[in-house]
């Protein structure tokens, strides 16, 4: 069975279902209509091509063939998470963690389409369960998530304090910063010493 096509079909159905639930997606998709964007994630066995019209069609590209997509993006899965912060993009490109080729506006519009998805889950849920049940479910869900986040945050603080103050199995943040500073001083001292030794060696060689 062509596994790649199974994955692209699942991705396509999910993406279009989500876009259908977002009333603002039509306007955002119109900006991309007729364009294609290739996303090649290093860890993925296949690069994906997103073809835009009044919906998104997901195709599988062949790495051995030259792509004709309007914009091509190559990155690793770790970089994908960093992409949310647009101020990091220049640094990623400079470090070769992100390779962008073609029309950057397509990449920006695609990113906007995905990250600015505005779905009123309660509204969609109410079509199945009715208004009251949907509202109750959503409120319960939100309160459970808030409580879980609070618990996780408390647990993290307790564990961190226990490890640093009581058990002393981890260093305090200030100590780590101080240690890093000392390492930096040592590194520059070593570099200076290395340069001095090289200079002396050159002098000896001339004598």
């Amino acid at each position: 069975m062509p596994a790649a096509q199974l994955v692209s079909a699942a991705l396509e159905v999910t993406l279009n279902k989500l876009l259908d639930m977002d009333p603002t997606s039509e306007h955002k998709l119109a900006k991309l209509s007729g364009k294609q964007m290739l996303v090649d994630i290093t860890e993925s066995p296949w690069p994906f091509v997103f073809s835009f019209s009044d919906r998104v069609d997901v195709l599988i590209a062949n790495r051995d063939e030259e792509s004709q997509a309007d914009c091509q993006m190559k990155l690793s899965i770790n970089t994908l998470g960093v992409l949310k912060d647009s101020s990091q993009i220049t640094r990623l490109i400079q470090n070769n963690d992100l390779v962008l080729d073609g029309d950057i506006h397509v990449a920006q519009a695609f990113s906007q389409l995905i990250t600015e998805m505005d779905i009123d889950w309660e509204e969609h849920l109410s079509q199945v369960t009715g208004d009251v049940a949907a509202h109750t479910l959503m409120q319960t869900g939100k309160s459970v998530i808030a409580r879980m986040n609070h618990r996780i945050s408390t647990l993290t603080t307790v564990l961190a304090e226990g490890a640093i103050e009581e058990k002393q199995i981890a260093a305090h943040k200030i100590l780590v910063v101080d240690y890093c500073d000392k390492i930096n001083v040592l590194r520059s001292d070593t570099a200076r010493l290395e340069a001095r030794i090289q200079r002396l060696e050159r002098q000896l060689g001339q004598d």
Partner: peptide
């Protein structure tokens, strides 16, 4: 249902684009 995947593969190999 696999005929749908065979057809998807055909489209993937077509190099089709706007215009």
């Amino acid at each position: 249902g696999i005929h749908r995947l065979w057809k998807r593969f055909t489209i993937d190999c077509s190099g089709a684009r706007a215009g």
